[in-house]
Design a protein around this nucleic acid. Structure first.
Length: 865
RNA sequence: GCCGGGGUGGCCAAACUGGUCUAGGCAGCGGACUUAAAAUCCGUGGCCCCUUCGGGCAUGUGGGUUCGAAUCCCACCCCCGGCACCA
């Protein structure tokens, strides 16, 4: 008997969480209506809160738990602040892990993926995330990828998708090409294998068309982390300079080069082509260098990107035996092939100015080439950039002391530009070259077009046909989706496994009716995730990708939440898609995500969690032991979510204890007090508790948004709960408050009402983090559903303190504290400070040199000697 | 090498515009309750000196500005992240 009674008295997260999840599920609590539907209410402002969609593989991990705990807190907070919040969920379901699993086990990627999706969905519901499930989608569903294909065709129509041959990164393990963005330090982003360059014909999205807009439109964003913007800016890599044409006379060829330093043109002493440069073979043909050049080109083709980029890698190259003419001084300079010049950047050819470029200098030293200084640092020490020549000495001309020098200065050895400031000369030289038609000012970007074709099975088929008569033919819209056929063998063999599905590949040309074959490559999964946030808004629409007015109503995403690892890839692709879709006329928005929050990673024992390390945390196990509320609150409490944090089991238990403490408090207060009491006229302790509650409201509100500092918001609620525990027995044993009327029962005194208010406020403020428990406690005390109640507002009168502790310092050192009324005048504060015994001791009769009074804070008395 | 972010008790951290350094949690210690333990509740909690009152020293290191610095400035050390032959 006793056992079962105490059992019922214990905080039981499993029962409470199940109870409220059933309510939310049955009532579709988090479903919101679109404009145009009868339930739509246009009097309420909208907010689109979105976390990056998960890639469903196995079970959700702690990173997912953090993302959705943070996002859900924001979603709940905004709902209760009066917004209509759309908060959807879906799955980035195409991709390599499911396919690699299929190669090993023979299990169809669709089956493995859907199993995983079921597990994710179950966990998300078990965590109590407030999702509008009516919008759920998976990018592998034909009803989704139909529109991925449709958008591909729109980009194709607009010339933003095209197929051409290019040197591309190839992963020998995954047997597929990769986008530039998916190559990390020369290795495959997915499997870590060294990638090699291959000359292949592939589909590209022309993101470079948007390079400038992608930079300019950072202006349109509300709040993005500075480091993410910087990373994208560096990736796009805009450089201003000039394109200058160097001419080869034999064979007759023009070689444009891009340079950011046209002011150093007179210092060009040789000229270098990348080994992949298309004219290399022709230049060397028939010369004594032909064989050496061919060997060098072949050797660098075999070398991995990593070997070539290695810092220790010595500069190597071979002469071509040809010369080009420098347009500024008609000088003939020798041509080389060297792998320090990259085909991917600029024109694949450079003018080499060894005196003012570190790399050219290194090459010139290695091959004993002339070095000619054309800029001298001025005498100002901060601009000499490493020149060791002392100002008194005459300018050095014949040695390379202080070279290479990349700073600014005075031009020398530069014909009529001698003596000029190099920055001025920069402009003048470009103008002069332009007038001679030998160059022009130019902007160059590091950003490359986005390679989207993949020689893999588990992705959206590219909706293109090839016909001998008609060439490249887009699949007509009414034939979409191009369904992904089932196949027997998933293993890639250098071309897409889809090529083996011959019945599928062979088809009829929609244009001429003749025989045509399908494109067998599939799309990069980053294509799928570049527009999912739009499909959520109208995910059941099978007439169009989304209704324009619906998308325009919800877009942009007001708060996007995810890991910083997507700073470049996903976020830049999604930005590009949004701009292209805007230009195609499908969307008003130019930027997808107005505010971005990137959360830090959770580690365990100081290391990133991984299965191979064996230090993973299974959220499901912890939910089982402590409940979802404890887990979610712990994740938000372990530190500011923007930073990472190290997982601690004791920390979770600590939060569990705190939630249990709130639960017990709620039970006790519900039992010992009655609703309907008034706190009007509450005195002393009751007023102290009310003030604490309003302080917590104020603190938590400001900490949640815009600070995203959930840890201190939760700490404020802990302080409030601690104070309630400290004060409750005194307040609940009162028989009447100061304004007690004779008919008042003990449960309705102002003291009781204050305790009840403070406790329900604690539940209300903690609700975004621990929604189940707080729904329960709030219902006990307020008889209402907490999520239907507006977020509490702090009463400014109760935030004002009547008195405060005045700090008294002597020479800046704390000597005493005096409680004073808040409205005490400055002179009186001084008098009080001076009358303190301990202050007198430290003044020691000496004259006060200075008196600092900061009302509301402190008095500082300064004495000399 | 370049560009960011950071370094505060035994640990995670707080201190928002320069104004009581260390809120809240974890671990610890003490007490109450209990036959006992667990759970719970209360208290304690930077280091050093002192019996108390009190005092000295403390925010990576060294300087500086200021009545007053974790916070601003200069130099240096260390950690984390990003980029890295970008012409």
């Amino acid at each position: 008997m006793a056992d079962s009674a105490s059992e019922a008295e214990r905080y039981d997260p499993q029962a409470i969480e199940r109870k409220w999840q059933l309510v939310w599920d049955a009532e579709n609590t988090w479903v919101v209506a679109n404009p145009g539907s009868p339930e739509f209410d246009d009097s309420v402002p909208k907010s689109y809160v979105l976390e990056m969609l998960p890639y469903p593989s196995g079970e959700p991990h702690v990173g997912h738990l953090k993302t959705y705990s943070v996002g859900d807190a924001i979603a709940h907070f905004r709902r209760r602040r009066g917004y209509s919040v759309v908060h959807p969920m879906g799955y980035d379901a195409f991709g390599l892990p499911a396919e690699n699993n299929a190669i090993q086990t023979g299990e169809h990627p669709r089956d493995a993926t859907e199993k995983s999706i079921a597990s994710f969905r179950e966990q998300f519901k078990r965590w109590g995330i407030s999702i509008d499930w009516s919008r759920e989608l998976g990018t592998h569903e034909p009803s989704y990828y139909r529109w991925t294909q449709w958008i591909f065709l729109k980009l194709y129509e607009r010339g933003l998708a095209r197929r051409h041959e290019a040197p591309v990164h190839w992963c020998p393990k995954d047997q597929t090409v990769l986008a530039n963005e998916q190559v990390i330090d020369g290795h495959c982003e997915r499997c870590g294998t060294l990638v090699v360059l291959r000359q292949l014909e592939q589909w590209f999205f022309r993101i470079t068309e948007y390079a400038q807009q992608l930079l300019d439109d950072f202006e349109l964003l509300d709040s993005w982390p500075e480091n993410v913007i910087t990373m994208q800016r560096n990736w796009i890599g805009r450089s201003e300079g000039a394109e200058v044409i160097f001419t080869c006379e034999e064979p007759a060829l023009d070689f444009p080069v891009f340079t950011t330093r046209p002011d150093t043109l007179f210092g060009a002493t040789f000229f270098v082509l990348a080994p992949e440069h298309p004219e290399v073979e022709r230049l060397a043909a028939g010369t004594e260098h032909e064989e050496a050049v061919r060997d060098y080109v072949n050797a660098s083709a075999r070398a991995s990107a990593e070997e070539r980029a290695d810092e220790e890698h010595q500069k190597t190259g071979v002469p071509l035996g040809r010369e080009v003419v420098n347009p500024v001084n008609s000088e003939r300079i020798p041509m080389f092939v060297a792998d320090y010049v990259l085909m991917e950047y600029g024109t694949g050819a450079i003018m080499a100015v060894p005196a003012h470029d570190e790399r050219d200098y290194e090459f010139a030293k290695a091959y004993d080439l002339p070095i000619r200084r054309v800029i001298e640092g001025t005498d100002r020490p901060d601009e000499t950039g490493g020149s060791s020549a002392s100002p008194a000495e005459p300018p050095r001309t014949n040695d390379d002391e202080g070279l290479p020098y990349s700073g600014d200065g005075r031009m020398v050895n530069s014909g009529r530009f001698d003596g000029k400031d190099n920055r001025e000369a920069h402009e003048e030289i470009v103008e002069w070259l332009a007038s001679e038609d030998r160059g022009k000012s130019a902007v160059n970007f590091r950003l490359r077009d986005w390679l989207v074709s993949r020689q893999r099975y588990w992705g959206a088929p590219i909706p293109i046909l090839y016909c001998d008569e008609c060439g490249t033919v887009p699949v007509p819209e009414d034939q979409l989706p191009v369904l992904l056929p089932d196949i027997e063998e998933y293993a890639p063999k250098g071309k897409s496994p889809l090529a083996a599905a011959e019945d599928w590949v062979r088809t009829e040309c929609p244009s001429c009716g003749g025989e045509a074959s399908r494109e067998t490559d599939t799309m990069d999964t980053f294509v799928d995730s570049s527009w999912y946030f739009l499909r959520y808004l109208d995910s059941r629409n099978d007439e169009e990708c989304w209704a324009r007015d619906v998308a325009d109503y919800w877009m942009p995403v007001d708060q996007y939440i995810g890991g910083v690892e997507h700073a470049i890839l996903h976020l830049m692709y999604a930005r590009f898609f949004t701009k292209a879709l805007h230009d195609i006329g499908l969307l008003e928005a130019r930027e997808p995500f107005a505010n971005l929050f990137t959360q830090g990673m959770i580690t365990r024992d100081g290391a990133t969690m991984s299965k191979s390390r064996g230090n993973t945390v299974s959220p499901a196990e912890y939910v089982e032991r402590f409940g979802a509320d404890s887990l979610r609150t712990y994740i938000c409490f372990m530190g500011p979510p923007i930073k990472g944090g190290d997982w601690s089991d004791e920390g979770v238990e600590g939060i569990f204890r705190f939630l249990a403490r709130l639960w017990r408090l709620g039970r006790e207060v519900a039992d010992r007090t009655e609703s309907g009491g008034s706190t009007d006229g509450a005195a002393e302790e009751a007023r102290e508790l009310l003030a604490k509650a309003h302080w917590a409201i104020d603190k938590a509100t400001r900490d949640i948004e815009p600070r995203f500092q959930f840890n201190t918001a939760i700490a404020a609620v802990m302080e409030l709960v601690n104070d309630i525990y400290r004060l409750k027995d005194g307040l609940l044993s009162q028989t009447g408050g100061s304004s007690a009327s004779p008919e008042e029962s003990p449960g309705t005194t102002t003291g009781a009402a204050a305790v009840r208010f403070a406790t329900s406020t604690a539940a209300s403020l903690l609700f975004p983090f621990a929604p189940h428990l707080c729904s329960e406690v709030y219902e006990w005390l307020a008889g209402e559903r907490v999520w239907e109640q507006p977020w509490p507002e702090a009463d400014p009168d109760l935030l004002e303190r009547d008195t405060y502790m005045l700090v008294v310092q002597v020479n800046g050192k704390l000597r005493d504290r005096v409680e004073v009324a808040s409205d005490t005048a400055e002179e009186e504060l001084l008098d009080l400070a001076k009358s303190s015994e301990n202050v007198q001791r430290h003044l020691d009769g000496k004259a006060i040199a200075k008196e600092i009074v900061v009302p509301g804070r402190l008095v500082n008395l300064v004495v000399k000697g």
